[in-house]
Amino acid sequence: MTRSQRQRILALTPRERLKSRWTALGIDRPHRRVRGPETGMAMVRGRMGATGNAFNLGEMTMTRASVTLEDGPLGHGWVRGRDFHHAELIALIDACAQQDDLRERIDAELIAPLADELATRNAEASRTAAATRVDFFTMVRGE
């Protein structure tokens, strides 16, 4: 799994859920902040007609953080909104996942179940939308 694939799952998981899943893993590595956490904005772009040239739609708040473990690797995290803890937690998990002894555990015991949860949440939302899909039937008039 690539760092950006992990980052996606971590950013799409609500912070409280991520925190409890991570705590349950019992990985406790001392770390310190090297950048941020800091909140700023990302300019969100769209495309004309969905497929054409880009244009600037408007900005969104976002937060980024970078941390380093005592024994070396840097970790980075970015997330929508203004939650310092969420960004820092993503950075910490990213840093830990650079460690050979932790990577497999993180992928198997954190990222994979969170990806499953995300898929389940999305499927439920999709089924709720699907319940509002129109079934047309044709009225036959006269004979």
């Binding site: 700023g40 904005m41 990302a42 969100v44 769209g46 969905a50 497929t51 900005e59 939302a125």
Partner: peptide
């Protein structure tokens, strides 16, 4: 409030064709 924040990034154009549809 927006004027108090730095711009950290510019997004890729969002892909509305890949939207998780609600309506």
């Amino acid at each position: 409030y927006r004027t108090t924040l730095p711009r950290l990034a510019v997004s890729e154009p969002v892909d509305t064709s890949a939207m998780r549809i609600e309506r």
